[in-house]
C-alpha cells in the first residue's frame, strides 16, 4: 500500500469516527448523566434523517431541511421523554432496555407506515456538489469535509457547554450525585429533560447530515447505535472527551482493518481465503479492541468519577 493511499485511509477513518462521535455524544450524555440506557437513540438518528430529507425535498433545499430537522428532533425527543422515558428513570437497566427496545419497534413500523420501506430520496446539499482530488482518480466530496467540520464544532461546543457554563456544572454535579443537587434547590427533572433534549437533537443532527451519504431507510439507526455503544463504552460512559477519542479510535480501527487485513493475511494464506477471513476479522476488530480495553480498564479510557 502506498503512503498516499494510507493517508487517504487515515482520513476516511477519522471521518467515520467523527460521524460516530455525533451519534455517541448524545448517547453518552444521557447514559452518563441520567444513568439511562436509551436504545431508542438510533431511532432518533433515523427520524432526524427522515425529517431532514422530507422537509428538504418539500422546501427544495437540503440546508433548510437540516436546519428545521433540529427543532423537530428536539420536539420528538421531548415527546418521547414525556410519554415513555420519564417513567423509567427509577427503574433498573433491564426495564429501560425492554421499554426503549419497544420504542424502536414501534417507531420503525410507524416510519414504514408513513414513508414506506424503500430507501428515501434525499436532496443533495447545494453548494457542496464537487470535491477535492486527493489521489489520482479519487475525489473527496466536499460535503464530507463539512461533516468533519460539523463534528469538530459539536465537540468544541459540548466541551464548552459542559465544562465552562453553569448549566454544564449542574449537569456534571447531577451526574455525580443527583439527590444532593436536588436538595440544593435545583430542579433535577428539568435538568434531565434538558440533557435529554440536547441528546435527541444531536442524534437528529447526525441523521440529517448522514442523509446525503448513506441510505435513509428504516433500520438505518440500528447499525450505528451498536457502534455508538462501543464508542461510549470504550471512551468511558458519560465522558464527552472519552467519546471523542474513542469514536476516532473506532473509526480508524474499522477503516484500517478493512483496508489492510485482507492484504496482510495474504502473506500467510492463499488469496481467496485471505480475502474472506480478512473481511470477517475486519468486521470483528472493533469488538476485539473493545474487549481488550475493557479488560485493561473496565471503566473505559476516560472513566467518570461517581460519588
Amino acid at each position: 500500500m502506498s503512503l498516499n493511499l494510507l493517508l487517504v485511509q487515515l482520513l476516511n477513518g477519522a471521518q467515520l469516527g467523527i460521524l460516530l462521535f455525533l451519534v455517541a455524544a448524545g448517547l453518552t450524555l444521557v447514559f452518563g448523566v441520567m444513568d439511562f440506557i436509551n436504545l431508542a437513540h438510533g431511532v432518533q438518528y433515523m427520524l432526524g434523517a427522515y425529517v431532514a430529507a422530507t422537509l428538504g425535498t418539500l422546501l427544495g433545499s437540503f440546508w433548510l431541511g437540516l436546519l428545521l430537522a433540529l427543532p423537530v428532533s428536539l420536539l420528538i425527543g421531548l415527546l418521547l421523554e414525556w410519554v415513555v422515558f420519564r417513567h423509567l428513570y427509577r427503574r433498573d437497566h433491564l426495564a429501560q432496555v425492554l421499554a426503549t427496545f419497544g420504542v424502536i419497534l414501534t417507531v420503525e413500523d410507524a416510519v414504514r407506515a408513513i414513508w414506506g420501506s424503500s430507501p428515501l430520496a434525499v436532496p443533495q446539499p447545494e453548494g457542496f456538489a464537487g470535491g477535492i482530488e486527493i489521489m489520482p482518480g479519487l475525489t473527496y466530496p466536499s460535503f464530507r469535509l463539512a461533516i468533519i467540520a460539523a463534528g469538530l464544532l459539536v465537540a468544541l461546543g459540548l466541551w464548552l457547554l459542559v465544562d465552562r457554563t453553569r448549566a454544564g456544572m449542574l449537569v456534571r454535579a447531577g451526574a455525580t450525585n443527583a439527590p444532593m443537587v436536588s436538595a440544593l434547590g435545583v430542579d433535577i427533572h428539568k435538568l434531565f429533560t434538558l440533557v435529554f433534549g440536547i441528546g435527541a437533537m444531536l442524534a437528529g443532527f447526525a441523521g440529517a447530515l448522514a442523509g446525503p451519504v448513506f441510505a435513509v431507510a428504516p433500520g438505518m439507526g440500528d447499525g450505528v447505535l451498536i457502534l455508538a455503544f462501543v464508542v461510549i463504552v470504550i471512551g468511558g460512559i458519560g465522558s464527552i472527551r472519552g467519546a471523542f477519542v474513542a469514536a476516532i479510535l473506532v473509526g480508524l480501527i474499522d477503516t484500517l482493518g478493512r483496508a489492510m487485513l485482507p492484504d496482510l493475511l495474504r502473506l500467510v494464506m492463499d488469496a481467496s481465503s485471505a480475502r474472506q477471513t480478512g473481511a470477517a476479522l475486519a468486521s470483528m476488530l472493533v469488538y476485539i479492541v473493545m474487549a481488550a480495553i475493557l479488560f485493561l480498564s473496565p471503566a473505559g479510557l476516560f472513566p467518570v468519577r461517581r460519588g
Partner: peptide, 12 residues
C-alpha cells in the same frame, strides 16, 4: 455503511 475505504482501494 461507509464505502470510502473500499472506494480508495478501487481508485488505487
Amino acid at each position: 455503511l461507509d464505502f470510502s475505504t473500499e472506494l480508495a482501494k478501487i481508485a488505487a
